[in-house]
């Protein structure tokens, strides 16, 4: 029962290969060291996120304003509720995993099947939720204006509530700017999708609505975004604004610096990929448990090894949650 490998007859000989260093099987020890190296990769990402954040410490986007959606609650400001729920789902799937490992130690196949099933479901829900978060972030909510220097200007009304581009723009019906497609003109040239409104439409609308003000990226002492006066707002709209941004991608981000979007996509994407591969590995082991492979081996150590990986994914999420959503 020492390992999953057939005995070699060298168990008692220290140099014969049958001895277990650190009293742990080969597979489990290698899983630990893989986890260590993966933890260092993740901390490299998170530390460079910290670097960029310290670099823009007075203009970083406020996470509560970015991630404030909840399924089926449209237009309700729900900061962090959904991501807190996701965190619970992942922690809970970690619990069911450790219960599966525990049942495995006691050789209870039925219980292992049940708990691993719950773990897989939890992981799948988590990946789905992550995709939904991405969708909201990419789509954006209010839209903003970008300046020559790449700064983001957002719009608020007199009371400080955010105002979307669609409520500002005075749509020019004689607009003749069309998107250049591959089928027109030179075949190898095309342009990206045009934004819904042009900067002129927003500029005209902004001048008409006297209550509108501009909110810059700069944070005040209290950690809120600076709101400019009406005259300053008009000046910035006239002199600096060159284009509009809706949603976020790797080069433009309506919520603030594009670096925020880059790190968000990269870190949560890398973590999501880990969750996805964790689910796939769990499914493989789950099938093996159903087939009774480990019953025949009289040893459920494989469940323990994938369990280690699964807990690690949860561990990373605890840190991502803190540094992206809370701090």
């Amino acid at each position: 029962m020492e390992t999953t490998v057939t005995k070699t007859g060298t168990e008692d000989k220290i140099w014969g290969g049958g001895n277990q260093p650190l009293k742990v099987s080969y597979g489990k020890m290698m899983m630990w060291f893989f986890i260590l190296s993966d933890a260092l990769t993740f901390s490299g990402f998170l530390a460079s996120y910290g670097f960029s954040r310290f670099k823009f410490i007075d203009s970083w986007p406020i996470a509560d304003e970015v991630f404030n959606h909840f399924p089926f609650l449209h237009g309700v400001d729900a900061p962090m509720y959904y991501v807190a729920l996701m965190t619970f789902i992942l922690i809970f799937s970690s619990v069911t995993m450790v219960l599966a490992v525990d049942a495995g130690h006691r050789m209870q196949q039925k219980k292992v099947i049940f708990y691993m099933f719950l773990t897989i479901i939890g992981g799948a829900i988590f990946v789905g939720s992550q995709a939904w978060e991405w969708k909201n972030f990419i789509k954006g909510e209010y839209g903003a204006v970008e300046t020559k220097g790449g700064q983001i200007l957002q719009f608020v009304d007199g009371e400080g509530h955010r105002v979307g581009l669609k409520d500002i723009a005075i749509v020019d019906t004689h607009k003749d700017r069309a998107q250049h497609e591959r089928k027109n003109g030179i075949w190898f040239k095309k342009e990206a999708t045009l934004p819904t409104y042009t900067i002129e439409e927003i500029r005209n609308g902004f001048e008409k609505r006297k209550d509108l003000l501009i909110r810059t990226q700069t944070l005040t002492e209290k950690g809120q975004k600076t709101i400019l006066s009406r005259t300053e707002s008009l000046k910035r709209m006239q002199a600096d604004a060159i284009g509009i941004v809706e949603g976020a991608n790797l080069t433009h981000n309506e919520y603030g610096t594009p670096l925020f979007a880059n790190f968000f996509f990269f870190i949560t994407g890398f973590h999501g990929f880990h969750v996805f591969s964790g689910v796939v590995i769990n499914i493989i082991i789950f099938i093996n448990v159903i087939l009774g492979t480990y019953e025949r081996r009289k040893n459920y150590e494989m469940v323990e090894k994938v369990g280690l990986y699964w807990h690690f994914v949860d561990l990373v999420w605890v840190f991502v949650f803190t540094f992206f959503y809370l701090v």
């Binding site: 901390s43 490299g44 530390a47 460079s48 910290g50 670097f51 960029s52 954040r53 310290f54 670099k55 823009f56 410490i57 007075d58």
Partner: peptide
């Protein structure tokens, strides 16, 4: 170690 050097550097760039 990594967090210390990167955050110090980030603060300097700021």
């Amino acid at each position: 170690y990594l967090v210390f050097i990167l955050l110090t550097e980030g603060d300097y760039v700021f």
